[in-house]
Nucleic acid binder design. Structure first.
Length: 424
DNA sequence: AATGGCTTGCA
DNA sequence: GCAAGCCAT
């Protein structure tokens, strides 16, 4: 009788049983399966340049929910999820020693340097112990091996070129079946407790949320007033990020929304991400890495390639074939929030301003401002910079031009890319 | 409109 | 001849 085969399925950014090639392969090649997730301490340190928490509260909450859900799913099917706190390479090494015989370690391959470093260390551990390493590709709609390019050098630099070829010739692989019963774990392994939100060092990050709750007029705890006033005065209240960074982002109403929306929800629309990136890099001339690490910290759907690639692109040092491209913040505001409802929802201090004028409070007359109960530099800041191209979209009533209602502008809407009428 | 063709203005 | 501006898909 041959020895029983044990496979460790190391979960990474693929915390699911359904449509998961790691489980799919292990079901066919193992007698015992060990589903494993490791809370890697490196994911809870500061970001490289600006020391934001690398995993913010929204993504951590989602991660904890996903781990709990996968464990419950596996338990229903005769298995469970082993949970450990530690580096995957150390945890896997310990498991191999403890069990004496492991046939293979299976996991989804990633592409960024920190993830690759983990993979290299895992492979070295497995090599030393004569354990097979089985990797899979599973985080893109089109499988890497199915791309309609003969070699990686044939991959277009420009996104639209890639999209057109792939939409025309690409093939999306069918969903893999979900096993009814998952092969059992070997005996004698501790299941491991799932760490808590607080246990992973998430208390400090709540400062940002309460500050922005307060500034959005939603929170009213007077204890937060002090923190907010420190920001208002441009003082650092935290070692991580200068408050002047946040303050500078409050210049334009459309951009003011974003830190609030992001800090409160962990989400920002695609359009918002592009606008914030353009404003931060092209108007404020700040280091794009500040924006990239800020997004990495807060976005619930953060992805290394999308985030860093898009910030590079926005900063003008990516694969854009055209130079000196930047967004006109006022045009964007009028295109996507033509009557200003979105601004008024998130920026209550400007709610007295009617219509699209809410995108340009500094251009309004004193009487219009006082009627709207807005006092520039008191209830809302004046711009620290004004880009010349904004004037093309700013109403200039003092020059006697006809009042533009912007009703002629096509309001594309925030969900332009998801329009049901659009044929792809 | 996550591109790119065409026009404009100046060296 | 080139960079920047305009603007339609």
């Amino acid at each position: 009788m041959s020895a029983s085969r044990t496979v460790i399925c190391l979960l990474r950014n693929d915390l699911r049983l359904h449509d998961n090639e790691v489980f799919h392969w292990a079901q066919r090649n193992a007698d015992h399966i060990i589903p494993l997730y490791c809370f890697d301490p490196r994911h809870y340190q500061g970001t490289y340049h600006f020391n934001f928490p690398k995993t913010g509260p929204f993504r951590l909450r989602f991660l904890l929910d996903s781990v709990k859900d996968l464990r419950a799913t596996l338990r229903k099917r005769g298995s469970t999820l082993l949970v450990r706190q530690g580096k995957p390479e150390d945890v896997v090494s310990d498991l191999i020693q403890q069990l004496g015989s492991v046939t293979a370690v299976a996991f989804h391959e990633e592409v960024a340097s920190e993830e690759k470093t983990v993979e290299k260390k895992l492979k070295a551990i497995c090599c030393q112990n004569k354990v097979k390493v089985q990797t899979f590709w599973g985080s893109t709609l089109y499988h890497r091996a199915d791309l309609p390019f003969s070699h990686i050098g044939g991959l277009p630099d420009v996104y639209t070129q890639f999209r057109k070829v792939v939409e025309g010739q690409g093939r999306v692989r069918p969903v893999l079946s979900t096993p009814e019963q998952v092969k059992s774990l070997p005996l004698g392994l501790e299941e491991g407790t799932i760490p808590t939100f607080e246990g992973l060092g998430q208390t400090g990050t709540l400062i940002y949320i309460t500050v922005w709750l307060y500034s959005a007029g939603i929170g009213n705890d007077p204890r937060e007033n002090r923190k907010f006033n420190m920001i208002k005065q441009g003082l650092d209240y935290d070692n991580n990020v200068s408050s002047s960074f946040y303050k500078s982002l409050t210049v334009i109403a459309l951009v003011t929304i974003k830190p609030r929306e992001l800090a409160l929800t962990g989400f920002m629309s695609n359009r918002g991400r592009q606008n914030v990136a353009s404003f931060l890099t092209k108007d404020l001339c700040l280091d794009w890495r500040l924006g990239a690490e800020w997004f990495e910290y807060l976005l619930v759907d953060h992805d290394v390639c999308s985030n860093y690639g898009n910030w590079l692109y926005s900063a003008g040092i990516g694969n854009d074939p055209r130079e000196n491209r930047k967004f006109n913040m006022i045009k964007q505001g009028l295109d996507y929030d033509n009557n200003g409802d979105y601004v008024r929802q998130w920026v209550p201090e400007l709610r007295g301003i009617k219509g699209g004028d809410v995108h340009m409070p500094w251009t309004l007359s004193n009487s219009a401002l006082s009627h709207a109960q807005v006092s520039l530099n008191e209830t809302y800041p004046s711009p620290v910079i004004i880009a010349p191209e904004w004037s093309r979209h700013v109403n200039n009533k003092s020059e006697g031009r006809a009042h533009l209602t912007h009703q002629d502008n096509k309001d594309r809407g925030i969900d332009f890319y998801f329009s049901k009428n659009k044929s792809f």
